[in-house]
Simulated assay, not measured.
Amino acid sequence: MAAADPGTFTGRGVPARDPGVPGERTGVGRAHGKAILLGEHAVVYGAPALALPVPQLAVTAGATGRHRAREGEDEVSFTVTGPGSEPVAPPTEGLRRLVAEFKRRTGLAGRLRVEVLVDCAIPQGRGLGSSAACARAAVLALADLFGRGLDAGTVFDLVQASENVAHGRASGIDAVATGADSLVLFRSGIVQELPVALAGGGPVRPHEPAGGHIGGFDGLFVIADSGVSGSTREAVELLRHGFERDAGTRTKFVGRVSDLTDAAAAALADGRPGELGARMTENHELLHEVGLSTDRIDALVGAALASGGLGAKISGGGLGGCMIALAGDPAHAEDVVRSLRDTGAVRTWVVPVGRFARHAG
């Protein structure tokens, strides 16, 4: 899980507060992006889901201010910025819920006067966990600022408080994956970390044999931005209405996605990237059938498969956003990236795992 680190916040494009201001200090929190490999939407109905942390998409929050014992209305502001963007005020309803829950859970009585500056490298509206990562980083920054130790469960609950406002009924997988350092299997609120090495800080176990890694899974995940924002809330409602019209559709969808996700987790554990890729593609076909894909996403999925990808699918809420493909080696990953860009992807990210992660960067 991500952890808050003490120090002065100096994120890209976000000025550090003058440390000489009397009575004020800065707390720092960090998180990162995520991509769903299998199980999005079905996870809300109890199916398992697989998520991939994306450490390249980093989020750092700095919380500067103070706490006064006297009562009064809190003065808490949030500003989000990122590479090449001007600072903007994000939708604050969820974040303000987070602050209220933070005070309640930590017993912090009185009035807060805090400015939270979030440096977010995750593009918004792309299904990459920007809202959850910003909330997680903000929670950890507040905890650091006020010297409150938070266990993983409390951090999860606080992020979920914000996510439920932002997206409606949030499954919880984003709240977990934006702080994980391993691939995670999420099932009905229970998290299982899958010990596959990730570039940028994935786990290396003490009992791991020299030169190897648990499961022996090697590959590179290629994420492509379609250039069109998706809406998780809209996609959730679209699917819910469809299920209300035909309850059998829901049972079939959730059952099939559960089977695919379990098979994919087994393929990861056994080091079978070809099977994982096939299950990803099948999951995409199901999401397409229920109306959550788009022509542009479908074209990117087709391009990834045609250029040697082992599997490809939409990733996240749908109705836009990103797709994710699996390549078996760096040469194939380069081919997939080239094909995706030729097909219209506005940007791509490559997340190497297994032995490829050891040589990344």
Score class of each variant (00 low, 15 high):
171 S>V: 02
147 G>H: 05
12 R>Q: 14
360 A>I: 07
280 M>G: 10
149 G>M: 08
217 F>S: 00
215 G>I: 00
26 T>L: 05
359 H>I: 12
272 R>A: 04
260 L>G: 11
198 L>A: 10
341 R>V: 15
13 G>H: 09
148 R>Y: 09
44 V>D: 07
238 L>D: 05
80 V>T: 14
94 G>A: 05
277 G>N: 04
135 A>K: 11
340 L>I: 05
243 F>N: 00
275 E>N: 07
188 S>N: 13
167 H>W: 10
273 P>V: 01
302 G>H: 04
78 F>M: 11
231 S>Y: 06
214 I>D: 09
56 Q>T: 12
117 L>E: 13
222 V>F: 10
48 P>W: 05
66 R>A: 12
200 G>S: 04
326 L>P: 01
78 F>R: 10
23 G>L: 12
73 E>P: 13
140 L>D: 02
321 G>R: 01
83 P>C: 08
30 R>M: 11
98 L>C: 11
191 V>C: 12
111 R>A: 10
258 S>Q: 12
136 R>Y: 04
247 A>M: 10
199 A>N: 06
116 V>R: 02
286 L>K: 02
34 K>T: 09
194 L>G: 01
300 L>F: 08
189 G>Q: 09
221 F>Q: 05
4 A>F: 12
205 R>D: 10
148 R>C: 15
53 P>C: 10
253 F>H: 00
110 G>R: 03
252 K>F: 14
110 G>D: 09
240 R>S: 15
346 V>A: 13
198 L>P: 04
205 R>H: 13
176 V>S: 09
68 R>P: 00
99 V>A: 08
282 E>N: 04
171 S>E: 01
125 G>E: 04
234 E>P: 01
332 H>I: 15
255 G>R: 06
155 V>K: 09
141 A>V: 08
99 V>D: 06
277 G>D: 00
55 P>W: 04
351 V>S: 12
168 G>T: 01
152 A>K: 13
67 H>L: 13
264 A>W: 03
54 V>K: 00
102 F>H: 07
41 H>Q: 07
120 C>S: 15
137 A>N: 05
234 E>V: 08
161 A>T: 12
5 D>A: 14
208 E>Y: 03
159 V>W: 11
342 D>N: 14
312 A>T: 01
32 H>D: 08
168 G>S: 02
242 G>T: 00
197 A>N: 04
58 A>T: 13
67 H>D: 04
320 G>Y: 03
146 F>D: 08
133 A>G: 10
212 G>C: 12
212 G>N: 12
